[in-house]
Design a binder for these strands. Structure first.
Lengths: 121, 121
DNA sequence: TACAAAAATTAGCCTCGGCTAATTTTTACG
DNA sequence: CGTAAAAATTAGCCGAGGCTAATTTTTGTA
């Protein structure tokens, strides 16, 4: 079983190529949100020494509640990333869960990106 | 009451500027979907003489059903645009509704864009 | 220290844009 | 002309990312 079927007719290959392109755009839009938050938070901390949700909301042009929901979602994603990595290393589910709690807040963006690559996400 | 308060402190003005920028990005993402459809449909008609939903789906990398839903939404938007324009011209709701039915399928993208500008959308 | 204002969180709702599965309509052809 | 295959539609689900309103927690200050 090969991934990129060189024997398929050209118009089908073209359609698949196009589909992958649109898919990448959709995924990029997803990532943008996280990146906007990271950037804004860094900027606020740089300037004011802290990053209040209320200030993020003002700068993003959304409500307080929306910022809260989004941050929850993003930190949930971060948590799962660390936990799944630990399980890949052989931790049992319970241990992975507990350790992830302790680790995740000390994990830089770079390390998180590395974990993502490692897990193939 | 003025729109852009020149007397507001600089950091608030900056926050508003940033909020508008994020808002524009969100709106741009919305428009992209419609543009992708218009472009793909034109391309398919150009090449094959027709634009089947099933082909759009393949090229967009989504399912048949998704294409159907999205097209429904977009044509609903088009319908409302024409109808609201007629009402702006003084048509009563009933007349506007009926006439929009007849008109909307003969309206080019350019005209629709003009209507949008006229209605301030 | 008490309390008012500010910030954060929670609850409940919406739309968009995805999906699968089932059904109906259209098309092509023997 | 009938029918099987293809295409389209419908029903019902999900998650992301918005909202408002209400509540709880935190913070600054008299």
């Amino acid at each position: 079983m090969i991934d990129r079927d060189e024997t398929a007719p050209p118009h089908l290959r073209e359609a698949k190529r196009q589909a992958r392109s649109f898919e990448r755009v959709r995924q990029a839009h997803q990532r943008e949100v996280a990146e906007d938050y990271v950037e804004l938070i860094a900027d606020l901390i740089d300037v004011t020494g802290e990053a209040r949700a209320v200030d993020l909301a003002e700068r993003l042009g959304v409500t307080n509640a929306t910022v809260n929901n989004t941050l929850n979602r993003l930190t949930r994603e971060r948590h799962c990333l660390v936990r799944d990595f630990l399980m890949q290393l052989g931790d049992d589910a319970e241990t992975a869960k507990i350790d992830a709690e302790g680790i995740e807040h000390h994990t830089s963006e770079k390390t998180l990106a590395a974990l993502k690559r490692f897990l193939g996400r």
